[in-house]
Each structure stands twice: as C-alpha cells, then as structure tokens.
Design a protein around this nucleic acid. Structure first.
Lengths: 226, 226
DNA sequence: ATGATACTCGAACGCCTGTTCTGTGTCAAG
DNA sequence: CTTGACACAGAACAGGCGTTCGAGTATCAT
C-alpha cells in the first residue's frame, strides 16, 4: 500500500489536515471534535493514529491537550476561538514599493506577534475565509484613500475586482502602489479615491494595472499623535 | 429538609451559581465543565438536577447546549472569553448632532446586535477597560479626521484629554461635533485634523469646548462603494 | 540482509458522561 | 384534603471517548 513520506521539515499533509479540521469544526460546532470525528473527516481509520498525530502536534506546540477529557484539545497560537480570525501581517504597504503578496504556503506558519486578531462578527460579507492577509500602511501616501500612517488594512488576495470594490493595485508604469475604488469603463479604468473631494485616476487600457488584493477592512489604533 | 424557593422572576441563586461556575471553569480549563463537575462545585448531589437547571438556563437563553456531546455547553451573550471585548454601539455621530454619551448604567444591558466585538490584542495601550463605547459615523463630515461615512469609532468616555490625543468634542458655540487631535495652548485650544493637509481649528479660551470622549480605535468595513 | 524509524490498522478496555426513570418532600391553588 | 407543579435525590443505562496493545508495512541508512 502507498505510504506517505514524512516531510522532515514542518508539518506533514496529515498534520495540516487535522489542524484545519479542528479549526473548521470548532468554528461550526463551537467545541472541539472528538478523536473519532477527526479520523472520519481526515480519512484515518484508526483512533490510535489520530492520537498518534495529536501527540505530535502537541509536542510541536500546535495544539494543547487535556488528557482523559472528552474533546479536550485546542489550537494554540493560531485561532484559539472559532469567533476570531488570526490574520498574518505580511509587511508594509507604501506608495513607492510593490505590495507584498502572500506566498503560496505562507499562511501555514506565522508567529502570533506578526498577526492581528479580528472578531468574525466584524467581518463584512462572507470574507470569513482564511485567505486574508494584512499590511501596515507606512507614510501618508494613502490619505486620499482615507487611510493614515500606521493603519492596518485587511486584504483578500485576488487578481480581478468588480466595480465599486476597493483594491490594492500596483501601477508598474508609474512605479506606484495605491488603494482605490475600482471601476472598469469603456476606455480603460477609473481609480476613485475614497475621499470624495479628490479626483480619480484615469487609466487607459494600455497602462498596466496589477490588482493584488481587495480591501475588506481598515483598522486604526489611535494612540497619540505627538 | 430545607427547600429553595424559586424566584419566579429572573434567575435563582442556583442558576447564578451554575452560570458563574461555568464561566470560571472555562477560564481556568479552557473548556466547559461536565455535568458532574458542576454538581460537585455547586453542591448538587444528582446529575439529573444539574441537567434540570441546565435545561432551564438553555430555555432562558443563558447558555447553549449540544446534547449528547460531552461538555457541550457554552455561555451566550456576554463575552465568555477574556480574549474579546464587546463594545456597545450607542448611536451615530455626525457634525450637526451632539454626541450620545453612555448613560450611567448603560453598559449593563445591550443587545448583541448593537455591539461590536474587538479582540483585546488589538486594543492599544491599556484601554482594555470595559468602559468603552462605539459610535457609527454618519455622513462625510469627518473626512478631515480621515474617517469615512459608516466607519465605527471606539471611544473611551472622558471629560479631559492630554495633548496629542484624539477626542470627540461638542462645540456648543458652533453647534458642531467633531473629531480632532487635542492641544491645549497658552491662548486657548488647537484642534488638529488627522489629515496633515488640512488646517487646525483655533479656539479661544472663551469658546465652549466639551470633550465627550477619547478615540481609541477606528474600524472601517469596506463593502462596496456603489 | 538487517535493524531502526516512521506510519498505519484494528480491537478491546474502561472510564467519563449525558440521559432517563422512579421516588420524595414542599407549597400553593382548588 | 387533594392535586399538581416544582425542586431535588439516587440509581442505572447506554453510548461516547481517550487510551493502550499487538501487529503489520514501507523507507532508509548501516
């Protein structure tokens, strides 16, 4: 029979699968799954194998376990609750620099320090998917998007947008990153600033427009201005 | 034997005791207690009696239960976890209207619909006190504070501010509400807009300035602009 | 080859736990 | 006084669940 080869570095596919299942189960049921439920949904036929992986995940610090207690497991670091999302802060965003986009398997491991927690109840629409990432705004170049220095923008990675959505775009012709409301028009694109007093950027079809993500939320921690 | 008299209105002593125990147990163990554990710590000798009360608490909406599932209960309504704050949205804030301030005992009861949840990890400084309230911005009158129509501002009620703090003030002379950075100067007050391209409001000492609260956070859910 | 290591399976054991049933004492209404 | 709702106890049942054990298989370095 085919055997899975262990990826000596990081988590194997089954580890990841179990981790994901615990998270999604917790979100749906408000409590952790049992060992047998994990086995069923992760195609593991024996409870002892689930237990085997759970032990490893505990040793590697990904989960905590309360032995002997039914469903006594919880994720550590990442999403402790089903009510919150942990969004990785992948870097900064500023006018003169390209946008850091999430590398393929970048969501797997990120330190709790470099992430922000968002209550799912705050999330607009059905963007509750876990493919979100965050960037910290650097500089005052986004003031036309009503976004301050230091603000945190939550993005959903995408290559195309619908009219009226706020997107993060890289204008390679101008060497510029910007956040604007996106409108496709007959002769090109219109990038509308959030500030209604400011004029839009009109782009011809010939000009390059790379959509990197869609803005779903902006968070500003107001400390002191000094 | 002594019997407890049921308080026909509200929760009896045992109901409250069970509720408190579930909360404290959950805090300590990260998972809910079992029926028998509740019985032991609440001086109830029979599991059926615990079940009896749990049923009532479920009917009255204080807890939710997953039948047949071990420790399948959880508190509803109030933030069961210490990881999130529930902030009441007391109303709207706009230029032409006074600021709704929290009435004395207003934090006690508010519906979950009229509140926003904030992860404590997001809270700046030590404003994690629960005396916070939120207002929804109405209109474009706060654009000079880099705040959009529909944004949610989290406020901490206070009557005075230190220099550099963003405050919500009511200028009775002008019949105007505004959000500005606050600076006390020798000849009066300076109210500085967050947008660095805009000019401050200079106030003489004689002009009335009512500070209603201090802004600690701004949240913008970006849906669609259309 | 050979042993070590990693991984998997199936089954059984036994405690944990929610559920249910029977019975008892209290108290207010009829 | 009878009746019934209410609060409670105790015991037993049945299924859920974590744990453990024995055994088998694939990969790989020795």
């Amino acid at each position: 029979m085919m055997m899975m080869v262990r990826k000596s570095k990081g988590l194997g596919e089954r580890h990841q699968r179990i981790l994901d299942f615990i998270a999604s189960y917790q979100r749906e049921h408000k409590h952790p799954p049992s060992i047998r439920e994990i086995g069923e949904h992760c195609d593991i036929s024996s409870t002892s194998v689930v237990n085997y992986y759970l032990d490893q995940l505990e040793k590697s610090g990904h989960i905590e376990r309360d032995r002997k207690i039914s469903r006594g497991m919880r994720l550590t670091g990442n999403t402790p609750l089903g009510d919150m999302l942990r969004v990785p802060v992948l870097g900064v965003i500023q006018a003169g620099e390209p946008i850091p986009v999430p590398s393929n398997a970048d969501f797997a491991s990120f330190t709790p320090e470099d992430s922000v927690e968002i209550a799912t109840s705050l999330m607009p629409g059905k963007e509750k998917g876990k493919e979100l990432f965050a960037l910290q705004v650097q500089g005052d170049s986004m003031i036309d998007a009503m976004i301050n220095d230091g603000d945190i923008v939550i993005l959903k990675p995408t290559q195309d947008a619908r009219n009226g959505e706020m997107v993060a775009v890289w204008l390679s012709d101008r060497n510029e990153t910007t956040l604007k409301y996106y409108y496709k028009e007959k002769d090109g694109y219109r990038l509308q600033p959030a500030n209604p007093t400011m004029k839009p950027i009109m782009l011809k079809k010939t000009e390059a427009l790379e959509i990197k993500g869609k803005v779903v939320m902006v968070i500003r921690k107001v400390e002191r201005y000094n």
